[in-house]
Design a protein around this nucleic acid. Structure first.
Length: 445
RNA sequence: GCUGUGAUGGUGUAGCGGUUAGCACGGUAGGUUGUGGUCCUGCCAGCCCGGGUUCAAUUCCCGGUCACGGCCCCA
């Protein structure tokens, strides 16, 4: 059929959301939204496309090849947004300079990246995120991380691992060893952080040698990376930092963060401190954290964030650093679906079960006889639909059942004569008779 | 960017170098002109796209598209 008409498909890496899919997504979004609000984060929205410079300024010219960048009819260089942190920072600098700080902002929307699409990785994907701007330090960070954990916990996600690190400490160590923070095509420090994140020790040793650093230095880093536990690992970390001559200050802050988190957030299934967490987080400057779900395989990171400095790009250096995170809406949903199936659970997102709904079924009577009742029931907050097919009762009930209605209000000739209606509950099979007016009917719905 | 696997109605599938391409679910119209999640019947709807080999391609080959994996990457 398709070929007879129009051979057009969805662009690669995009998705359509049918009503049943959308129902779940809306339930999930609402749940996240209510959590954000409960932590004081207020929703904002920024444009789907932005000036290209916004992202090249933040991430370098190399990002363009991964952007949906384009020229508009006036030759402006624009791009679909690949993420939401920079746009929100831009918005703060343009609209909220005079707003009292700190700001707690949340956002939800689609982002676009030109990459190979696969499961859990789409060219158009959805992010829910939060940013805390104008306050910094371990307590601010604890507020942000606790929201992230609270969100994951409340949607019923299990078996996830929270990893907390600190790229500031890592940078200090690497520059302390003599690695440069500048270089082409990639600064040695950045290369080292990437290798550390992957646990590629051979690669790291190579890098050290190439930069004239005794490769035995990687032993300390390897020790550091093996500190993969809770708050208790910080003592060992302090010892290692001492031998490297690095300040403990950031570690002490990390300790405060972890202690605060313990009180502020639900206890996650697994929370580990690992100072080698560094995953491609260019603009992060301090604490970083990420959440992984092993179930998702290669695309298992469902959330990531930390403390970063971006507002100086807009002349607001006094507000740096900020702290925030982005939650991979699609990936968390995938994880929840996989976990629900494994557990044999029907409800994937808490609260996704739609509210009761009613089919008004005039049967061999003029539909006009029930229209005002439908209006009144809707005004009373009920979800009501008028039958538009005009089939016999058996088919109509079948149709109502397949379409998930809770109740059917049948108004046939006999009912109408007696100024009554029959209300059948499709879930229980119970049937009642009520007077043909909305006040009587509403009690049965 | 590299690489592997796959693609049959809307969904899930069967099948084959020559078939009316089968089945189930679904949709739709009835059988049943006041009771569904039973049954029966009719109908709707498909071989991803383009090229090649062949008397003949949905089937074999190549390319593309899309999907799913593995690396790379992931602001």
């Amino acid at each position: 059929m398709l070929s007879v008409y129009l051979m057009v498909q969805r662009p690669r890496g995009t998705r359509d959301f049918t009503p049943s899919v959308m129902n779940r997504r809306l339930a999930f979004e609402n749940l996240l939204e209510s959590k954000a609000l409960s932590h004081g984060f207020k929703r904002v929205q920024t444009p789907i496309f932005e000036t290209l410079d916004l992202f090249t300024a933040k991430s370098g010219p190399g990002v363009v090849k991964q952007l949906y960048a384009f020229q508009d009819k006036s030759d402006r260089a624009l791009t679909l947004r690949p993420e939401l942190t920079a746009p929100v920072m831009r918005m703060v600098s343009e609209e909220m300079r005079a707003s009292p700080k700190p700001l707690r902002l949340s956002y939800f929307g689609q982002c676009f990246r030109y990459e190979e699409s696969k499961k859990g990785r789409y060219r158009e994907f959805f992010q829910y995120g939060a940013e805390l701007i104008g306050a910094s330090g371990p307590l601010a960070e604890a507020e942000v991380v606790s929201l992230a954990i609270d969100m994951l916990d409340s949607c019923g996600l299990i078996d996830y691992e929270v990893r907390i690190g600190h790229v500031g400490i890592l940078r200090d160590i690497l520059t302390g060893l003599g690695l440069s923070e500048v270089g082409e095509p990639e600064a040695p420090v950045a290369s080292a952080m990437r290798l550390l994140d992957k646990g590629d020790w051979d690669g790291l040793a190579e890098l050290f040698t190439a930069n004239g650093i005794d490769s035995s230095a990687s032993a300390h880093l390897q020790n550091l990376s093996q500190l993969d536990g809770g708050i208790e690992t910080l003592d060992s970390a302090r010892a290692i930092l001492s031998t490297l001559g690095i300040s403990h200050e950031s570690l002490d802050e990390l300790a405060t963060l972890l202690i605060s988190l313990d009180s502020l957030a639900p206890t996650p299934p697994s929370l580990k401190v690992n100072l080698c967490v560094a995953r491609g987080l260019d603009y992060y400057t301090g604490m970083v954290f990420e959440v992984n779900v092993a179930e998702l395989g290669g695309e298992g990171q469902v959330l990531g964030g930390g403390s970063y400095k971006l507002l100086h790009l807009f002349g607001l250096e006094d507000l740096d650093p900020s702290c925030g995170f982005g939650l991979g809406f699609d990936r968390v949903l995938l994880a929840l679906e996989a976990q629900a199936e494994r557990a044999g659970r029907l409800e994937v997102v808490p609260g996704e079960t739609p509210p009761a709904s009613t089919l008004m079924l005039p049967f061999k009577v003029e539909p006009s006889a029930v229209l005002s009742i439908i209006k009144d029931l809707r005004d009373a907050g009920k979800n009501v639909e008028l039958d538009l097919r005009g089939k016999n009762i058996g088919k109509s009930l079948d149709w109502a059942s397949k379409n998930g209605f809770t109740n059917v209000v049948i108004v046939g000739p006999q009912d109408y004569e007696n100024n009554q209606c029959s209300i059948k509950n499709l879930v229980t099979g119970d049937q009642n008779v009520a007077a043909l007016d909305s006040a009587s009917i509403v009690d049965f719905l």
